[in-house]
């Protein structure tokens, strides 16, 4: 018997006579209370985990700060490429290119307010995983309609089989005396630009139905 057959056989033998387990109850929350302002909550939670928050497209240069060479996915909206920085589109950039960049500017797929989590799934305006990992500074644009209150609302918005990265604050470690210290291998600085104008709020009410 090969390993596969043998392991499956061991499992079946171990379960011999065991009936099916009961269907799991699912009585937990799937959303926040209706009166919660999810934008405000997201901002609160982002700041709590040491991310910087900005408002509106016009604040993108401020979020990029001193960065001169900024990597962007090829499909990043042109209207986000603001300021003095040089925007370098990721056309198969090498690791060294990425390592030499000052920052990366992307969009996202969804955000979860309650945990301050930004989610990427390699979809529109996000690029491949390496570009949001190697540069030391990540600026991510979140549209109002991408913000959900609860994790259970965000998961269905992601491509379940696309490579997903969920980001909650800059990289950190709690390995020394269980104290959280920001900044290890991932980007040490995370800036979040929230686009919450009324036109987009309107679009949200259509798309989330």
């Amino acid at each position: 018997m090969n390993a596969r057959e043998e392991i499956l056989e061991r499992m079946r033998r171990a379960l011999d006579g065991a009936g099916p387990a009961p269907e799991p109850p699912r009585e937990y929350r799937r959303s926040l209370d209706a009166d919660v302002d999810v934008v405000e909550l997201l901002i609160d939670r982002l700041v709590d985990y040491k991310a910087y928050v900005h408002h509106g497209i016009a604040s993108i240069p401020e979020a990029l700060g001193e960065a001169r060479r900024v990597v962007v996915p090829a499909d990043l909206p042109a209207e986000w490429r603001l300021g003095e920085a040089e925007f370098v589109e990721d056309e198969a950039l090498t690791t060294a290119d990425l390592d030499g960049a000052d920052a990366v500017l992307t969009g996202c797929a969804a955000a979860v307010a309650v945990s301050g989590t930004i989610m990427l799934d390699a979809g529109a305006a996000q690029g491949r995983r390496a570009i949001t990992l190697v540069p030391d500074h990540h600026v991510v644009v979140v549209r109002r309609d991408q913000i959900t209150g609860h994790l259970a609302e965000a998961l269905p918005r992601l491509d379940p089989t696309g490579p997903q990265t969920w980001i909650s604050g800059p990289s950190a470690t709690s390995d020394i005396e269980l104290q959280r210290v920001e900044g290890v291998h991932g980007p040490r600085r995370l800036d979040v630009v929230i686009l919450a104008d009324s036109a987009l709020t309107h679009r949200q009410s259509c798309s989330s139905s």
Partner: peptide
Amino acid sequence: ERMNPYTSVWTG
């Protein structure tokens, strides 16, 4: 933590 800094999900 409410959420750990990074979670990776990949499929093949």
